[in-house]
Simulated scan of single mutants.
Amino acid sequence: MPTVLLLRPAAQAVADVAVCQQLGWLPVVVSPMCLVAESAVLSTLPEAIQDANVVFWVSPGAVTVAAAVLPETASTIHVAVGDATARALRAQGVQQVLLPSDGHDSEAVLRLPLWQDAPKRVLVVRGVGGRDFLVDALRARGWVVQVAEVYRRVAQTIDWARLLPYLHSGSLNAVYVAASSMFEAWWGQIPPSLRDSWQSLLYLTHHERVAAVLRHHGLNVKVVNTLAQGLAHLNSTGSLTP
């Protein structure tokens, strides 16, 4: 069975694991970082959501961390950065979810017609140290922006012995990277003796920004709309040529 490495926090990898299995791939989840909740921020999140007209969720992880305190907000518009985040919100009972159809990042979110309306109050739910692109852009348009950093990323030691059988057997065909922070945390731990082996693999991502980071490290990268699309293409052609 062909194998794909998923660089994801375990809680965020559930949907990706299901996609891999449905397409006949063996998923191996590696979490070089875990998400640790910021309890003090979470305690104020329900009130912040109630006060906002729009809530922007930057990742499925943000939804997962905040799930236990999500209030019922029928009048609030929730915006997801992409499909996975939208699915996470709907799984929590949030029905009114907007998301871009032409990208999976803050730049694509900013292109939504929503932001052409009269400026209101928006809450950005993210991790500590997240990008300020959308925050700055919306404030420049007159929106009142509040940021809730509900989690921080904590590095985890990777069990390389667990991965060696996949690497040496030749069954490992691709690595899927959803976030550059996950990649950097993983890449920085690779033992020098294994660097060439990992550098020879195909890397899939659905972010052009992540792809630029991967190419900076000299990797073979293919940008796909979704993980499912990339794996299906591999199934049909046997290769993805950048």
Results as ranks from 00 to 15, higher is better:
V17C: 15
D159A: 06
L219F: 06
W186E: 04
I77L: 13
R141H: 06
L201A: 06
M33L: 14
A211S: 13
R215M: 10
L231M: 04
C34K: 12
V29W: 02
A15D: 15
N225M: 13
W160R: 05
G230H: 08
L214M: 14
V128K: 13
V54L: 10
G130R: 07
R139Y: 00
N53E: 14
G103I: 10
T237M: 08
V150C: 03
F183I: 08
L204S: 03
S75N: 10
P119W: 13
A174Q: 03
I158M: 07
L202A: 04
V94R: 07
P191I: 15
N235M: 11
L163Y: 05
S169W: 01
A80I: 14
L201Y: 04
H207Q: 13
W143V: 05
G93Q: 09
P192G: 13
A18D: 09
H216Q: 15
V58Q: 13
P46A: 10
L6G: 04
A67I: 03
N53V: 05
Q21I: 09
I190D: 01
M182C: 06
K120I: 00
G93W: 09
G24E: 09
G61K: 02
A40H: 10
V122Y: 00
P60K: 07
A86K: 14
I49F: 07
G24C: 06
L45N: 04
A161I: 10
D117G: 11
G24R: 10
Q21S: 08
E107F: 02
P2W: 02
I190M: 04
V144D: 10
R121Q: 14
S75I: 00
H216W: 09
P113V: 04
R153H: 01
G170V: 12
A174R: 04
H78V: 01
L110K: 06
W143G: 00
G218R: 09
W187V: 07
P192F: 09
L70N: 00
C20W: 02
A185D: 07
A228L: 07
H207Y: 10
F183H: 06
G170Q: 07
L164D: 13
N225A: 15
L202F: 03
V224S: 03
A140F: 00
G188C: 07
L240C: 13
L45D: 00
Q21G: 06
S171N: 12
W186A: 08
P100C: 01
